[in-house]
Design a protein around this nucleic acid. Structure first.
Lengths: 261, 261
DNA sequence: AGTTATTTGTCCGTATGTATT
DNA sequence: CAATACATACGGACAAATAAC
């Protein structure tokens, strides 16, 4: 038999059919199932999904506006290839050096900053007295001009009062901390969640409604194991993959603490 | 001014307004912003979201069917609390011991298994000759009876021919490998992505359409650093948080030179 | 040249779902 | 529980561009 493929779409779920079709096609892209070339013709897709051709056309129109595919009259509809960046997370997590080999240019932009009493979660993460003053930075990091992550970072105000200004100039957390006397810092812990992007993140990351973000919560510590930074980053899930590479030291015991590239 | 909170919902995105409202309320739950008690009255929510009260009612009806909230005549609408499990990822990643302290019971169920030639990605991950035979396991792991993750795992067939049967009995990868002579294994690498759940995962994880999964791709190696397992797990993003805890060995003393942009 | 088949693009009308008043 | 406006989904028909023969 042909491809009766009953990829059962659900009706009256509050999500339009054309969007469900678009989501499925997009997922086909990111799974890497399809190469960089032609999609099946609209009529075939319609049959495959069990919907009208117009519905498929709506889906394709949406994908085209997103830049996922391009439709050419008479020829067909083609996938635009877009690879995910690989963002390494480990004891030594840094935006710029982590993407060094994958993007020609990287940049960090300061969106806003504020000094205020620390929320409970922040004071705990930074091991501060409850109510201590902290600086909050809202930043967006891009690779080759494409926004990759939006981050909210908290620093102890007493120690890092000028970090907002310095970050505004350097565009780099690592560089800013270095200027403020933190020669080196390491990642203590990272929590990872996934959710739909908020309205603000849609703007900051130039995503379309319904997009997914990978949300990381991390604490960085200095050489004396004192917390310097609590950060909450939202990565555009269709542009980034988080990679945890455990430095090659198999079972416990003798561990090599070196890093290499 | 009251709370004119313009959480601007987007129209004609293919996602019905009532569903966007429901999603926002649900996210409020999972972010922990709201306690376990009462939601604002419908009229206030309507004002807050800038929609009609009927629309809010549709949203709440949907959330009630999902078990997220309960509406009570004359009293109001209340949140049912649900916390995320914390799933640790590190060199020693194991399902059961990782959730030990958070769930009374844990179990792994074998959905299906198959022996076939390794796909390219799998043979590379396991360092096998291309086309080597592998065993593929489809499993679902649950905590306190609630499905947490659906996983696809590949093993070298020559070495682990009976793993499907053994897993079916033990319900544990660690136990199964032990019975097959792998006393210990460690995590070599973990990649993390996020996407919408596929139709199959919606079933396996008992999720509702539009749900998000955290997708991890991991390679586990034995004491001789030989790959034993390539696994692809899908975690229900609204039930689980992935946690990367870097074993406390702060900075490598000798300052860093290899970093910086 | 032309002719046909394939595929995307546009137009018509109609029924149902969604959202507001 | 209306009445209304708009978005969504379907069905059919034809035009326009492309490719192959």
């Amino acid at each position: 038999m042909g491809k009766t493929a009953v990829n059962t779409l659900e009706r009256r779920t509050g999500i339009a059919l054309w969007r469900q079709v678009a989501d499925q096609i997009r997922q086909g892209v990111i799974t890497g199932l399809q190469a960089n070339d032609r999609l099946p013709p609209e009529a075939e897709l319609a049959a495959r999904f069990g919907v009208n051709r117009h519905t498929v056309r709506s889906a394709i129109a949406a994908l085209e506006k997103e830049g996922i595919v391009r439709a050419e009259q008479g020829r067909g509809t083609f996938l635009n290839d877009r690879k995910r960046l690989r963002y390494p997370i480990g004891q030594r997590t840094r935006f710029s050096s982590g993407l060094q080999s994958q993007a020609r240019t990287r940049s960090g932009k300061l969106i806003s900053s504020q000094t205020c009493p620390a929320p409970l979660k922040v004071s705990e993460a930074l091991a501060l007295a409850s109510g201590a003053e902290v600086v909050r930075l809202e930043t967006v990091s891009s690779a080759d001009g494409v926004p990759v992550s939006a981050a909210t970072s908290w620093f102890e105000a007493a120690r890092f009062a000028e970090i907002a200004e310095i970050y505004g100039q350097t565009g780099s957390i690592t560089a800013s901390l270095a200027l403020l006397g933190v020669a080196d810092y390491t990642r203590k812990s990272t929590g990872i969640q996934a959710r739909h992007a908020s309205k603000e993140d849609l703007d900051l990351l130039a995503l379309s409604p319904g997009a997914i973000v990978l949300l990381t919560e991390a604490v960085d510590i200095d050489a004396e194991a004192k917390p310097v930074l609590f950060g909450q980053s939202r990565f555009a899930a269709d542009r980034v993959e988080l990679a945890i590479e455990n430095t090659v030291s198999p079972p416990p015991q003798a561990a090599s603490k070196e890093e290499m590239a």
